[in-house]
């Protein structure tokens, strides 16, 4: 029962974070919200007894994808400044 409440609350957190990621005006903030949502998803996976998936989500989904987004953002930013 306990894990159910934890999971439901975390799902709500992910839901709110994803809305923030979509609605935020600033791209950098969006990326950060997406990253946070990924981390919370990883926590839900732990609660739901999926340690392998949680590791993957944390390493690849939250870590690596965020890096890709940041670098792509900075590259576009750099191009913008050059013009």
């Amino acid at each position: 029962m306990n894990s159910l409440y934890i999971a439901s609350i975390f799902i709500f957190v992910v839901f709110v974070l994803s809305i923030l990621a979509i609605e935020s005006k600033n791209i950098l903030k969006s990326i950060l919200f997406l990253s946070a949502a990924s981390i919370f998803t990883a926590i839900i996976f732990v609660v739901w007894k999926a340690p392998d998936v949680a590791m993957t989500e944390a390493a690849i989904g939250a870590g690596f994808t965020t890096f890709l987004f940041f670098i792509a953002y900075f590259k576009v930013d750099k191009l913008e400044k050059e013009n």
Binding site: V14, A21, I22, L34, A37, S38, T41, G61, T65
Partner: peptide
């Protein structure tokens, strides 16, 4: 980002 959220 939307695609990634769908994926989540």
């Amino acid at each position: 980002i939307s695609i990634n959220i769908m994926d989540l």
